[in-house]
Design a binder for these strands. Structure first.
Length: 524
RNA sequence: GGUCGAUUCGUCUAGGGGUUAGGACGCAUCCCUUUCACGGAUGAAACACGGGUUCGAUUCCCGUAUCGACUACCA
């Protein structure tokens, strides 16, 4: 007896840590779900445990084809693939609840035998009538509970013979949990501390549906137990039903191995209030899903972070900091560093508003850290789509001067195309201010000197020739620089001009300048 | 309505009985520079309110307000 508590603790502590991510395949995986998966993954890696994925598809009416593949691909893209899953099963399969269907009824029956659950035969209409009656009587929360169940059609009110007859006749029924009238239910949440709820505020939730499938409540307890889950890390929206789950563990006699709970703060809209939704994405023009998604039923499209040009490591870093921080001032974390620094204790309690600016900033940081070779490959791929080709060397040179000003890989081409395609139009505001006789004179001299130049056009040689051209005409280089840029690029802003010249090359440079002088009328 | 939860700059947050309340994003100014960007520097910007407890509260307690989640044979 005196050792009881000790052994229980010991048993608990010696168990291998196992956590799970349990999404429903009802559509694209929401960013909040991705964060939940990430925290589960980090916790498992940090503790040397296992990260499993279980598909919660007990609602067959909400099944969406492709959703499961979407979940898998999203996690793979981010590099946080589960150790055990439907497509990579371990010893606790199956990993789809629909495939576990035969397992649940015996547990529901166990509860009935113990007197913690009962059959109910009420139709949807009868339930609706009950709610209306209660609402009319100004009952604060109309629900199927210890009081109202005495007036409903269930195995608690019906004679035993009739219950048997109804069951035998194949009449549809559900199995409900019998919530005790007076009991304090408490749980120690890893993030929120002690949460206490009185059982009188709970209702007799359905455990087995009339289609023979369990509800989430039954299935998640049975499966977590069978899959030896030690920690349930999930969204805050589950907090209100957590006491029900605690009660179920107790009634099954599984208290000793009941997982610890950690309810994550919600991801909120960037403006106003409320949970982040697809509507916000459409409204603000940023994604809330990891990847593009087209709903197979409605045809509705949603954009993804991946297709928008977010790098997986940047997205991951951003996501990790939505509700968690390492406690110091570091901001940039690789997946390995996140694992090293992660702890549930440092997850915040309050909801987190979604700020796409921060996501962009992270992307810029990671983009700049990439090598010219890697980014050059991006650029070459983009160019190929346009039917153009350049050497890896040239691609490397271009991205080298472009990456400081890009947010997404696609910007490399979008913002840098002027280096491969000559301008046909010129920024009028710059032209009217800077395109004058002095500039034209210098540019003419420059093309002459450039034609005569034999050798490597490096940023340095390009510059010294330009300086000579200005000096020859007794003009200060700074005065005409903007015009020179305009002539070659068509615009007034961009990366270091001499580096651009070196990339463009001598022949093209002369062509562009000559064209500009012909095309642009001299201003005052 | 009920139950549960949350509340530090605009946003993400650190901190915690005595601090000039720290950092990051964004914003502004300046520097660098041939422009823009990068980078650097500087600046504006916060403890929801009211009561306690205390020598002292942003920090602890209690209320209030606000916001949110949940309240299905959905998860």
């Amino acid at each position: 007896m005196w050792m009881g508590g000790f052994t229980a603790e010991k048993t608990k502590m010696n168990r291998e840590i196992r956590v799970r991510f349990a999404p429903s395949p009802t559509g694209a995986l929401h960013i909040g779900g991705v964060r939940t998966a990430l925290y589960n993954y980090l916790f498992a890696r940090k503790t040397g445990g296992k990260f499993l994925l279980r598909i919660e598809d007990t609602d067959q009416t909400r099944f969406v084809p492709g959703a499961e593949e979407y979940i898998k691909e999203s996690l793979d893209w981010l590099g946080i693939s589960p150790d055990e899953s439907p497509w990579n099963p371990g010893d606790c399969g199956p990993y789809r609840q629909s495939e576990r269907k035969p397992m649940y009824m015996q547990y529901a029956m166990d509860l009935i035998e113990k007197g913690h659950a009962y059959y109910a035969f009420d139709t949807a209409e009868e339930l609706e009538a009950m709610r209306e009656r209660l609402t009319a009587a100004r009952v604060v929360s109309p629900q199927y509970n210890s009081i109202t169940r005495t007036q409903m059609k269930n195995s608690l009110t019906l004679p035993e013979d009739e219950v048997k007859a109804r069951l035998a006749s194949g009449e549809p029924y559900v199995i409900r949990i019998k919530i005790p009238r007076k009991e304090e239910v408490r749980l120690n949440d890893l993030i929120r501390g002690w949460v206490m709820v009185h059982s009188s505020t709970l209702d007799d939730k359905v455990l087995m549906k009339s289609d023979g499938m369990p509800t989430y409540h039954l299935a998640n307890i049975v499966d977590d137990h069978l899959m030896k889950i030690t920690h349930v890390i999930r969204g805050e929206e589950w907090l209100p039903s957590a006491p029900l789950h605690v009660l179920l563990y107790k009634y099954f006699g599984w208290e000793e191995t009941m997982p610890q709970f950690a309810h994550l703060p919600l991801l909120l809209k960037p403006d106003g209030n409320g949970k982040l939704s697809k509507r916000d994405a459409d409204k603000h023009g940023f994604p809330v899903f990891p990847m593009d998604w087209t709903d197979p039923n409605s045809g509705e499209k949603a954009m993804g972070f991946r297709e928008q040009g977010y790098l997986p490591e940047a997205f991951l870093n951003f996501l990790a900091f939505l509700g968690w921080n390492p406690g110091d001032h570091r901001e940039i974390f690789s997946l390995e560093e996140l694992i090293e620094a992660f702890s549930i204790e440092r997850i915040g309690k309050s909801g987190t508003k979604f700020d796409i600016n921060k996501a962009k900033w992270y992307n810029e940081q990671y983009l700049r850290a990439k090598s010219d070779e890697e980014l050059g490959a991006y650029l070459m791929a983009d160019l190929e789509k346009e039917g153009m080709q350049i050497t890896p060397e040239k691609a490397g040179q271009i991205v080298h001067i472009m990456k400081e000003r890009a947010t997404f890989p696609a910007d490399l081409w979008k913002e840098g195309k002027f280096m491969l395609i000559a301008p046909t139009e010129f920024d009028e505001a710059i032209a009217s201010k800077k395109w004058n006789l002095e500039a034209i004179t210098v540019l003419k001299t420059y093309t002459e000197k450039m034609s005569a130049f034999e050798g490597d056009l490096t940023p340095e040689t390009a510059k010294s020739i330009l300086e000579e051209a200005a000096e020859t005409n007794g003009i200060k280089l700074g005065k005409v620089m903007q015009a020179v840029r305009l002539a070659v690029t068509g615009v007034g802003a961009g990366p270091d001009l001499m580096a651009v010249f070196s990339i463009i090359g001598k022949e093209e440079l002369i062509k562009r300048i000559t064209f500009a002088i012909e095309a642009l009328p001299e201003q005052g």
